[in-house]
Nucleic acid binder design. Structure first.
Lengths: 123, 123
DNA sequence: AAATACACATTGGATTGCAACGTATAATGT
DNA sequence: ACATTATACGTTGCAATCCAATGTGTATTT
């Protein structure tokens, strides 16, 4: 009996502004290393406010793979169960840079737009 | 026969990263003034990269009104046809500030995350 | 052998924005 | 006068995204 999805509440718009940024965030996380699914999920939570349902990460990773932006390989873990590792392809690196450049411009224009609302702080 | 919506192309992710930010952007634009629909649309294009279809603006404005964040009034234009003006309610101002604060934190975390991909430039 | 933990995966639903089309009023053209 | 154009608002069907819930498989623990 929890969180019946109140469209008035703040929960909804928080989710909506985060929507669409997961691909970029995941590509950025994979910029320097290979990681497996749940590991990416944990890094997202730590580095950004992007907390997402477990199932969602695989949905997005599958999409990235279908687009040829990442490649994968199953790896047997000495302790545990096999893990599927993900890393960027050449196309993935190009896309990551393109998205980052676009995002950078977009973020700063939004930032400018919301400055007046933030200056409300100081009396 | 144009733009058959290529999921591989850059058009799609551009749209997706912008999605969800329209509500905040519109509330921010209404922070100091009243405006009518198409006027808001033009300001979005000018101040941000948020270019949206005409129909969409009314969809969102109707949603904002249904949530009690804006109020409206028809005004006869001396030249032209009646315009519906929008302005923030008290609840709308509170929501705008809450969203702006959250967005500010989110934007800076994304910004940090994508820095490595942008430094590719020099060299 | 049952229970627990870890990791990956799928399905139905809610929400968003777009494309296309529709309505209404006023100014313009011939 | 009446068709055309411009401005402004509105609606409907569709595609894409993410979440919640649930399912599958493997390994560890007791």
């Amino acid at each position: 009996m929890a969180a019946t999805r109140d469209p008035e509440g703040p929960d909804n718009w928080e989710r909506q502004v985060k929507k669409g940024w997961l691909e970029l965030a995941i590509l950025a996380i994979l910029w320097n290393d290979k990681f497996y699914g749940l590991e990416i999920l944990r890094r997202l939570e730590k580095d950004t406010d992007l907390v997402l349902a477990e199932g969602t990460i695989y949905l997005i990773l599958a999409r990235l793979k279908a687009e040829g932006l990442v490649d994968t390989k199953w790896v047997e873990a000495e302790s545990g169960h096999p893990r599927k590792y993900y890393w960027l392809t050449a196309a993935g690196r190009r896309r990551a840079v393109a998205m980052a450049r676009y995002a950078s411009g977009f973020l700063s224009s939004i930032n400018t737009l919301i400055q007046p609302l933030l200056e409300k702080e100081e009396k």
